[in-house]
Design a protein around this nucleic acid. Structure first.
Lengths: 206, 206, 206, 206
DNA sequence: GATGAATGAGTTTTCATTCAT
DNA sequence: TATGAATGAAAACTCATTCAT
């Protein structure tokens, strides 16, 4: 976990890569996935045409790189929060984590999930979330939702479908809801229970 | 509702149009929205290049035409069913109607909702469903879901997100669930109640 | 063998094709095979960029089309000459036929055989000549050259190698030899016999 | 002829150069002259991109260097053989020398003469052989071939064309002929005489 | 209305080459 | 000397669209 010492060459390479990713994400949000060309990206990043191909294969490749960075960060945050035991109503905190991360990375999330993005990439994000959710469910001691005999695979689709659509709507449509409110409303809608009361000063405050 | 008598010319024109729509939908499912070209479509439909432009403006235009036909048919079916009063658990029958129609138009629904389609078009489908759902909700005498103080706009996102994702999953992943089972499981997941028991021979049997 | 009546469309298509072939051959002679681009060709033929791809796959494709036309014509001429019996010293007339045709199609032959052309295409020409020569040898009543027990496959290489190199040299280097002289000298070199004397007015005069 | 003592630096430099030449020749045989890029060469030689330009100007430059090495070696061998007087049927030994050297450098010769190579380079090889042959002819006391009054310049083309085509064929097509057999058959074909009988143990045995 | 040859703008992609390390 | 990231010019190639028939 030590930060590996990077040569100047490597640092330069990494910077160029980040510039390309940033330019690609911004442009997709502005013009829509299909309308963005590789040339747009290199122009925006102020790099030579060929430089793109040193780092990425095509448009999908850059964006998937951007998305993976985002997903990884979300997960890392989630896992770091619950190192000493899971609270009841764990799902609520899962939702909250997603809304918070989306709030801090609005551009990326709109590209990941929105109409400006690519159906293929959104599909991959959904599949990724579904897999992660399934893993988390399997790790839980008590089974949730099972009172209704609905198979896990179905529940996963319902939850991921709801979450993704709600985040998309939240980021696209003008509204004043906070991440805490959004997570609470989603929790209520799906679980038919009040979300945990906010008590005292907390690291989870938004 | 009377079938208007068509001239030979009109019938020929309509046939050409249908051939283009069918070719476009099939090709999008096979190669993905982005990869399909107008030439692909006319080649598959066995028509001249220019013929396309007599009927449609561009790729999006044909597919949106296909989708609108599909959506219109789904709604027509739904509304014809409940002409003499709404049953309790009306939502269940709404879900069921969608799954049934999707079952009979698998290719079209996969193009409408799946990864092969276009994010823009799927977005429009979602917006369409959301608007329709909102209309239906407003028309209902009793408010549903309101016990939890979740605003309608949020509920609409949760429901449409769930429905779309579940239909998508159902059509893409191999599974043996029937439309009745799917609607039932979705109803349970969202409403936390058993779906209506199936009683006797019924026009709603799948 | 009737000339098929061509529609105006087909005639136009054929003309465009010929324009592309002519432009390609001329340009290869001027700049060399490798240096010629598709754009050069369409510019020279005064046609749109994309038109090329309606007719040909790539550079090699146009040139091979040109070459095949040339080879076909040479063969047709040869076969039309000897319809009523083969003269003695038949090889001489074969050589003569080639030099005459090359003389009338200097540009094409220089592209086919010369340094400006492509090694791949020249290889194909050689293979074509070799195959044709083998066919002709097999059809001859008396065997030639066999006094030395050199296998046919070897002789074919010696003859085609000599012919091609000699035609190439003749077309590239400034010299005043006529086709009849060239054929005579080649015949002497390979067969160690005087070529047939030229007697009286003859359709074979150059 | 003394081996000059090389510094460590010079030895390293020479090795790099040889690696580039070897990589270039191998790649041309594999993919064809046109398809090979400088990057292919440096990748295959496991060297940095820029290194190429320290040693060579371009693709043609490396290959011509390789070819010159080959030609020089062939000539050196030829001249070392006949230091104490020319045998009769000297041409036979010239042919044999070429086939032997080609046999020991099959890859290089296929690149030099074959379809995978460049028409320009093959042209240069032919010109080189022709010049050398002309020099050798001029040095001979007795004139050969002149019984037929064929000018030397023509004979040179016939001989070099035959030799090159025969070597090319021999290396490309599967066959079991030895260099001695090939030289003998070529000698018979061109000179219409038996090649010299092989007598006793000899340094010329293959 | 249907056809399909021709168009040429727009993109992707490759590659030789440079240059700071 | 060797490196390899970056460059950007140059080509290939595709495709939507037009238009004469």
């Amino acid at each position: 976990m030590d930060a590996p010492p990077l040569t100047r060459h490597q640092r330069r390479r990494l910077l160029t890569r980040q510039q390309l990713i940033q330019a690609a994400v911004d442009l997709v949000l502005e013009k829509g996935y299909e309308a963005v060309t590789i040339q747009d990206v290199t122009d925006r990043a102020d790099l030579g045409r060929g430089t793109f191909y040193i780092h990425f294969k095509d448009k999908e490749d850059v964006l998937w790189a951007a998305i993976q960075d985002g997903l990884q960060e979300t997960e890392a945050e989630a896992h770091s929060q619950f190192q000493d035991g899971l609270p009841p109503q764990i799902e609520y905190y899962g939702y909250l984590n997603i809304f918070r991360h989306a709030d801090r990375n609005r551009t990326l999330y709109r590209v990941m999930l929105g109409e400006q993005g690519s159906a293929v990439l959104t599909g991959r994000v959904q599949a990724h979330l579904a897999a992660e959710y399934e893993r988390d469910l399997a790790a839980l001691p008590q089974k949730i939702y099972t009172e209704f005999d609905v198979p896990t695979e179905i529940l996963i689709q319902v939850v991921t479908g709801s979450v993704i659509q709600l985040v998309r709507w939240w980021l696209e449509v003008h509204n004043e809801y906070t991440p805490v409110q959004m997570a609470g409303m989603l929790y209520q809608s799906l679980h038919h229970k009040k979300p945990p009361a906010r008590v005292g000063p907390s690291p989870l405050v938004d």
